[in-house]
Amino acid sequence: MINTQLAALLTSGSFIIIGLYAAIFLDNIIKKIIGLSFIEEGANLFLITLAYRADGIVPIFLSGMNPQWFAENSAYPLPQALVLTSIVIGASTLAVMLAIAMVLYKKHGSLSTDEILGDKNE
């Protein structure tokens, strides 16, 4: 069977592809925003799978541990610290987009991208 890290990489790739598909082809603006949040989650998952170490330990340094042994088989903590902020960034971008979508709905009365963002002067 393929190991966990490769499977997790494939899942993050498929999340990014699903998100890109939704961003291009779906016409409903809320679904487009959901698709874009999938891309964000896919990128975060990608960063965490890079930090994984097969049958390693969780990167929490307890007092008694020997640093040499800890460095050799703990998962790499740096990307995990980065993903903490980037999850929050993804959520805040989503919130701003949903707010604009609500205003656009109030203005145009429909959720389909062609009507809202469609090109008038064409």
């Binding site: 990014i16 998100g19 890109l20 961003a23 603006i29 487009k32 925003i33 874009l36 949040s37 891309i39 964000e40 896919g42 990128a43 975060n44 990608f46 960063l47 890079l50 990307p79 980037s86 960034i89 971008t93 701003v96 987009m97 604009i100 979508a101 205003v103 656009l104 203005k107 809202i116 963002l117």
Partner: peptide, 24 residues
């Protein structure tokens, strides 16, 4: 202004994660 802001955010949500994957 709302339409332009929406388009800018949508394209930003494609550009941003690609930058993050590159950094990854």
């Amino acid at each position: 202004k709302y339409e332009t802001a929406m388009k800018y955010m949508i394209l930003g949500s494609i550009g941003g994660p690609m930058l993050l994957t590159g950094i990854g």
